[in-house]
Design a protein around this nucleic acid. Structure first.
Length: 522
RNA sequence: GGCCUGGUCGCCAAGUGGUAAGGCAGAGCUCUGCAAAAGCUCCACCGCCGGUUCAAAUCCGGCCCAGGCCUCCA
């Protein structure tokens, strides 16, 4: 079951061809570093693709790159380089970011500049069919001619005219018409067309590229909520208008926004965060876990905390974004310094949870590997045996990753209980079968979520190193203090051992005592 | 002004007709030299009012509140 924006209800996926699924996702305009909103808009389809493939479907995953656009041209002009260079640079950065987030690559990643012929051809058809008109080197779509315009976003032309805030453009016959082709100004990148030198409007590219790779009708079209209008509405008008038949995408899937500190993300300083900078602060898996902890159609909010560098008092959003003086200690605040102290409490919680799960996986792995050559036979506990089917049922119900993740908690608790129970208190067959089953089924969970796929011990070590580096902690010194404490403990010098633990605690180091030696975390 | 979401435990968050998943925080306990980790136990009648129904957080109406889209935007 998937929610379809067009019908505004959940319904079973209605595939064009049994066993195959075509998915088109609106990708980024590559003119700057990608932000957390882009991360969500990539992670949601990523989880969808994983889910579809897990059910055995052959998915063709297409995600475009918009590599020519006003913003790219502006950026290029500002830096004195070519638009191609800007697009190439940020395409590469985008790929790096998504790889760091563990997103599977699309099967096809078409660029606008490689599809100009298809775009020109489609515009030509729209003109032939009387749905578009050329005007002084531009071409516009005549919205009033497309009867279904507004179906996706639940509007009609009358509503839109009533509240029109559309800028005046005397070339358009109707303010609601939108550009299919923009005549080039001197010095701008341009391609030849029957209407003169120019470049495509923003919306036509997706119509042309989805048609080329998926056909005139395909299964699922995905993107951020903000694309519903006008972008996807316009795509429908273009594609159905040019092809002359009724269905463009059979399902429309739109993900919600990312907010920071309760406010819509915007480029104004303070509530705009790139994937790169967040992943430098927290493990990428924690970011994925946090995002997937909320249903994809809802908004997800990142709390932002910025402590005063001098006194540690939390600062208000106003001061965070514009600087000034600390209300508590009056210290002058430097914006760069504030940025370095940035914290996302929600991500910290997610990070702890991911680490706790890895910790359980590590213990389960150690236990299973440590059992001798003839493991006792038995059945896994009910909670563990039922985990995967509950998890999958939640995913299958409109990609409810939040419910799916919640379904892991009881089995996880069960696993921990069995692993830590005293030998005599638990049936060895049950224990072994449960741990083995948990590990086996959890690999399917990890495959679905794109989380928990790392070797647990390596993940935990890397995480500790990252945190230590962030705090500029001398790990060699910590190791030495821990070793010293182990010696004190072995000789039952409890006071000394406790003093060392307190000293480590003041450095933010948590000790976990083992039988012979202790480990530490941050 | 038009269109559209959402208001569920201190915080985050599932749940679209049958008497509220999960996480974090909190309280008590087990384990521990003391801790930590892990585990056990406890912890909500779902914004307000009215209606439909045997039965509503879930459906309908009204109200209050928050947010989004209508302009580039994931």
């Amino acid at each position: 079951m998937l929610y379809d924006t067009m019908t505004a209800e959940k319904r079973p996926l209605a595939l064009l061809e049994p066993g195959r699924c075509g998915l088109y996702v609106c990708g980024p305009t590559v003119y700057d570093m990608s932000h957390i909103g882009h991360a969500r808009a990539a992670i949601v389809p990523d989880v969808l693709v994983r889910a579809l493939r897990a059910t055995g479907l052959a998915v063709t995953y297409v995600r475009n790159i918009t590599d020519i656009d006003d913003k790219i041209i502006r950026r290029a002009a500002a830096e004195g380089v070519s638009p191609e260079e800007i697009a190439a640079r940020y395409t590469e950065e985008y790929h790096r970011d998504l790889a760091s987030l563990g997103c599977v690559a699309p099967d096809v990643e078409p660029r606008v500049t490689e599809n100009i012929d298809g775009i020109v051809e489609m515009i030509g058809r729209l003109i032939e069919r009387g749905l578009a008109y050329a005007q002084d080197g531009d071409v516009y779509y005549r919205v009033a001619r497309f009867a279904e315009y507004g179906a996706l976003s639940g509007r009609n032309l009358g509503d839109m005219r009533a509240g029109a805030r559309v800028e005046v453009n005397e070339r358009k016959d109707d303010p609601l018409d939108f550009a299919l082709w923009k005549g080039a100004k001197p010095g701008e990148p341009a391609w030849t067309s029957p209407w003169g030198e120019g470049r495509p409007g923003w919306h036509i590219e997706c119509s042309a590229m989805s048609r080329r790779y998926l056909g005139e009708t395909f299964d699922i079209h995905a993107g951020g909520r903000d694309l519903i209008f006008p972008h996807h509405e316009n795509e429908i008008a273009q594609s159905q208008g040019a092809c002359g038949h009724g269905t463009f995408a059979r399902h429309w899937l739109h993900n919600g926004f990312v907010d920071f500190a309760g406010e819509k993300m915007s480029k104004s300083l303070g509530n705009f965060f790139t994937i790169r900078e967040v992943v430098a602060l927290y493990p990428a898996e924690a970011l994925r876990f946090f995002i997937l902890g909320v249903h994809y159609r809802s908004g997800v909010n990142f709390d932002v905390e910025v402590p005063c560098p001098s006194c540690g008092a939390p600062l208000s959003a106003e001061v965070q974004q514009h600087g000034g003086t600390c209300p508590s200690c009056q210290a002058a605040l430097d914006l760069d310094e504030l940025r370095r102290g940035l914290r996302f409490p929600g991500l910290e919680e997610a990070d702890e949870r991911v680490a706790a799960i890895y910790d359980a996986l590590a213990r389960a792995r150690a236990f299973v590997d440590g059992v001798g050559p003839a493991p006792p036979s038995g059945d896994p506990s009910a909670a563990i045996a039922g985990m995967l089917s509950r998890f999958r049922a939640a995913i299958a119900d409109d990609l409810n990753t939040a419910a799916a993740i919640a379904a892991l908690s009881e089995p996880l608790r069960e696993l921990n209980r069995l692993l830590s129970a005293k030998k005599k208190e638990v049936d060895p067959g049950l224990r072994y079968a449960s741990a083995a089953r948990f590990l086996a089924d959890f690999s399917a969970v990890s495959e679905q979520l794109g989380i928990f796929g790392a070797e647990p011990a390596l993940y935990l070590a890397a995480r500790r190193d990252q945190k230590a580096a962030r705090r500029r902690l001398d790990t060699a010194q910590v190791d030495e203090m821990v070793a010293q404490r182990d010696r004190a403990r072995a000789e039952k010098r409890w006071k000394e051992a406790d003093a060392l633990r307190d000293a480590l605690a003041s450095m933010g180091v948590l000790i976990q005592d083992g039988v012979v030696s202790s480990t530490w975390t941050l």
